[in-house]
């Protein structure tokens, strides 16, 4: 049999293997989705039924979770404000200084940082802020959360900037553009979807963190907007209430979990929308 005929004869076999392979890929992706869908629908069913208006308008003393919502909101916002500029600029540095020794060391540091357990970051923020200031505070919680966000955003920024074609940069440099213009007007906009995705991922991550807040923001049942004082947040509140023997507290834990999931989902959709706007 000539080789070409062997090749033709082989097509049938290849087609079968190919469909089996497609089947396996599809099966495992669906399998992946099943627990996600189950968890989400479980939280939704359990949570929606426990929602009531009082949750959102009173603090824990009044039977609500407003203090935790305010605390989470403020701390996450401050963490984002602290982390994003530092992390994005570091990502730019790592992407631009590809081969420098310093960048290599930084890259390793960032990787190690990403692996540090979040409770350790909480202890660090405790030693740095809580001890000198002699008080638990929302601010120290926000700092602990920011430290968690930074490596995630750096990695994402670096990786999306590397994907920007060198020709694009050359085009700008070729017109005599200075470094800051090339980065701010050409490279970052081209990589914006990756950078934003990194910021969102990191934000969603810290929204659900309990450990870094244990020795920093500590928590408290009263509604408080003051960042220099202890602050409650949703994840520790869920942790506290879910263990309770009281049924109404467990119900509140479910409702709070649902609120947290909705917020993360909303952030996701928001980013998608912003990105779509950006592209057109």
């Amino acid at each position: 049999m000539t080789l070409r005929n062997r090749l033709k004869a082989r097509l049938g076999f290849n087609r079968v293997v190919s469909s089996v392979f497609t089947g396996i890929v599809t099966f495992f992706s669906l399998l992946m989705v099943v627990p996600l869908v189950l968890i989400l629908s479980f939280i939704t069913i359990k949570g929606v039924t426990q929602l009531h208006w009082a949750l959102f308008v009173s603090d824990e003393r009044g039977g609500g979770i407003l203090n935790a919502i305010v605390g989470s909101g403020e701390m996450v916002l401050i963490a984002v404000v602290l982390a994003v500029p530092v992390a994005v600029l570091t990502g730019v540095y790592l992407a631009e200084a590809r081969n420098s020794k310093i960048a290599e060391v930084m890259r390793i540091t960032v990787d190690v940082f990403q692996g540090i357990p979040s409770i350790v970051l909480g202890i660090i923020a405790y030693v740095w802020l809580v001890v000198p200031l002699r008080s638990f505070s929302g601010l120290s919680g926000a700092v602990a959360l920011a430290i968690m966000m930074i490596p995630i955003i750096i990695k994402n920024t670096e990786e999306s900037l590397i994907l920007v074609p060198a020709q694009m940069k050359e085009a700008a440099y070729g017109l005599g553009a200075p470094f800051h213009k090339v980065i701010l007007q050409i490279v970052l906009p081209a990589a914006m979807s990756g950078v934003l995705t990194g910021i969102l991922l990191a934000t969603a991550r810290i929204l659900g963190e309990t450990a870094p807040l244990l020795f920093t923001s500590f928590g408290g049942p009263d509604l408080n907007y003051n960042l220099t004082r202890p602050m409650e947040a949703l994840p520790p509140l869920i942790f506290k209430y879910a263990q309770s023997p009281r049924d109404d507290w467990v119900a509140t834990a479910w409702a709070s979990s649902f609120v947290l999931v909705v917020v993360v989902l909303f952030l996701n959709l928001l980013t998608k929308l912003v990105l779509r706007r950006w592209k057109h």
Partner: peptide, 14 residues
């Protein structure tokens, strides 16, 4: 590669 990529490995002389 047209052969290799389809899983056909020709003999050396072929």
């Amino acid at each position: 590669s047209g052969f290799l990529i389809n899983g056909i490995r020709p003999k050396k002389d072929e």
